[in-house]
Design a protein around this nucleic acid. Structure first.
Lengths: 124, 124
DNA sequence: AGCACGTGCTTGGTATACTTAGCACATCAC
DNA sequence: GTGATGTGCTAAGTATACCAAGCACGTGCT
């Protein structure tokens, strides 16, 4: 069988997921052990997941999302599991819209934030 | 430790999921082998899943959903995996949350933006 | 110099998701 | 009747998700 195997699950999507999780964890200032504790998984496993060595199953994903105060949907879509085949145009422009709507910001502050945000995302 | 709920590994929800899959399969007039073929899984495994003996992982779930022309979200919520218990409302946290979730930003950029945002909203 | 405690990572094993070969029973044609 | 083809299910094995113990390194403290 010299057939080239190509399953439906591409392994590269999972690497991005790991980086995403690590980013969210660092953003929340949690150590691996802390997050692992909250998410009810072991810290070595979390380590592997964050480096893309394993693809966590759905309930683990859900637990991690919970621990990071994210919705499971966010996690799944990051993991490439949610497909959004319906092309539902849901929460798309978070940042700029959220800034514009925020009542605690002055207009100048909003402009500054959006300017910075756009400079950050200029490469994409 | 008073409460002993069905944690993330509650096996009850999975049985309902199996019945749901079987119902949808019969509704589509597909045999196990047909559905298994389309969903890229083996038919014995589909048999086990439909009777609640195993809890399929997320990508299998997604493949089955696709094969049955269902949205992955429907499948996940049937599996009890979505159950938005994570944080009650995602749009509620506004700017900070939108920043954290934005895939176009690096972790450092997120931290910078959040820091600036907090400095803006700290005074008033 | 130590040691106590933090971090993330490696090793080796167990549990379980998943597959391949085959069983038992149906419903057809011959 | 026998066989060919359908159905769902069982058994035994492989792959991998996951865990417990411990390693290697860093930082502060006495």
């Amino acid at each position: 069988m010299s057939d080239e195997e190509e399953k439906s699950s591409g392994s590269d999507a999972w690497r991005g997921l790991g980086e995403f999780i690590r980013g969210q964890r660092e953003l929340a200032n949690l150590s691996m052990r802390q997050l692992a504790e909250i998410a009810k998984i072991s810290n070595p496993y979390l380590s592997q997941v964050e480096r893309g060595l394993y693809k966590p199953s759905a309930d683990v994903l859900k637990n991690i999302a919970n621990a990071l105060h994210l919705s499971a949907e966010t996690m799944y879509s990051q993991a490439g599991l949610l497909d959004n085949s319906g092309s539902r145009d849901e929460s798309h422009h978070g940042v700029e819209h959220a800034i514009k709507v925020d009542p605690k910001l002055s207009v100048d502050q909003k402009e500054s934030l959006i300017r910075i945000y756009r400079s950050f995302t200029a490469g994409s």
